[in-house]
Write a protein that binds this DNA or RNA. Sequence first.
RNA 1: GCGCCAGUAGCUCAGUUGGAUAGAGCAACAGCCUUCUAAGCUGUAGGUCGGGGGUUCGAUUCCCUCCUGGCGCGCCA
Length: 547
Amino acid sequence: MSAVELLRAELTRAARGLGATDPIETVLDRPRDPAFGDWTTNLAMVLAKPLGMKPRDLARALIAQGDWTRAGVRIAEVAGPGFINFRLETAAVAGRIPEILQAGAAYGRSETGKRTAVVVEFVSANPTGPLHVGHGRQAALGDAVAALLEWTGWAVSREFYYNDAGVQIEKLAASVHARIVEDAGGGLQIPDGGYHGEYIGEIAEQYTAGHPGDRHGRDTDRVREFAVAALRAEQDQDLKAFGVRFDTYYLESSLYTDGLVDETVQALRDGGDTYENDGALWLRTTAFGDDKDRVMRKSDGTFTYFVPDIAYHVTKWRRGFRRAINVQGSDHHSTVTRVRAGLQALRIGIPEGYPEYVLHQLVTVVRGGEDVKLSKRAGSYVTVRDLIDDVGRDAVRYFFLMRRADSQLSFDVDLARTQSEENPVYYVQMAHARMSGIFRVGGIDAAGITGEGVAIDLLSEADELELINALADFPAAVQAAADALEPHRMTTYLHDTAELAHRWYHRHHVLGEAPALTAARLTLARAAQIVLGNGLTLLGISAPERM
RNA sequence: GCGCCAGUAGCUCAGUUGGAUAGAGCAACAGCCUUCUAAGCUGUAGGUCGGGGGUUCGAUUCCCUCCUGGCGCGCCA
């Protein structure tokens, strides 16, 4: 048992001794101020009412009741309105280091997900243009959520769903066709709602060059397929540049060709929540919490996008994914209730909260203090490629992950690039590089540091114990971020931990101290290097050994 | 009008699921390089946690209400 578990067990035992009845929920937190100790509990305040005692009196009684030395406690004291603060023996704090060294690159991983299959769907951009900054935020978020779930023991599949058959694709094809006609000497007629970016002209040129026999783009199927392939290839390049890989690309068109759309419609009818009205087929989604019923099949006989959406999520369930997480822009939030309602109407045992959603707010790009709204190639929006080329992949990832998904994000290009000295991503990377530098300069193999035979209780300075506590909290930080599906908790954790590492590095020397002290501090430097490196790697950000 | 999300330092944003004196980065001011990277460290200043009620030992956090901003509200996707 770790020191915390021993402490919790002893607290619970003490509470029982004073007459508290089960269940006793004993919560141990890190105090706000490290000067208060290593751990704190509000147990006395929680139990004050049921036990009919004043919180501070109860806290004193709890302290008197427990055997604290067994849990490695040096000082237990009452503070504030009734907190009990615990200061552990130095050896109990420093004793956490060997497990970090031993786990190495796996430190922070757990098996709480029990290898259960979960699909994380993100980006899912239609192949009608280059990826924009919103897709970039989604790529960073989705990839990080997937990684968090992997780290906590889920069997994760990253999935990209794309619409290769709808109205938007026809508009893309018509837009490219218009450019081909223009290149061949005809007038330019881009259709209503068509695409105007420069990339359309580039694709038209490539098509003409590759298809000399069809200078006027009369083979519309071929033009469409060419355009879709070209844009998919470009999106793939962008994602590759961003370091994101998908396990599956799911084509919307396959839902039709495989008969899943028809099957879903039939299943919904069998479920009994459909009705015909005004020549259309409706689903009574209001029976499942929606604010209005939804049309499934329009009076012209075609389906609304909502039907393949349901069919698609049925495939996720059928493919064995007991959790499905969708990362989407909050402009799609109205589909949440709708999709869930559709799945419930099927009555096939899909849980009510399926799928889960991580919705993110829009991204604005700021450069020189002003909003940037256009890119050269795409015309109407800023592309993720623009950002990567500008500030680098690590900074783009970090900046997209720094904030909660549901807060609007202002991406300051100047901060991410020009003022690289004050850049938060470099701050964390630098802390890692400094730890690495100690081993490089000392000519020491970092991976060979095991802590065996080292007097780690020589690590007794207040700021090194504080750093050790932070490092020991890494697995809990990963777990909390994964449970909440909130990657920004990791950037916050990493920044805080990097600060402690920088401070420790600045105040204390590792190399050249008395041999026993140097050996002890090397274990801490190695532990910090492992945690910072693992955290950055988890988020898809490089952890350089030198900068 | 209805629904969802947000409102915290001059700016951009955290706040450990209800805890102690509300934090970070940037911007401002003052210090620190003979020693493992100064891409760093130390200090100062900066706040009606949008307003008002409520719940309780205790609220930035939960509930109600109002104000402001973003996004939705189609037989579009």
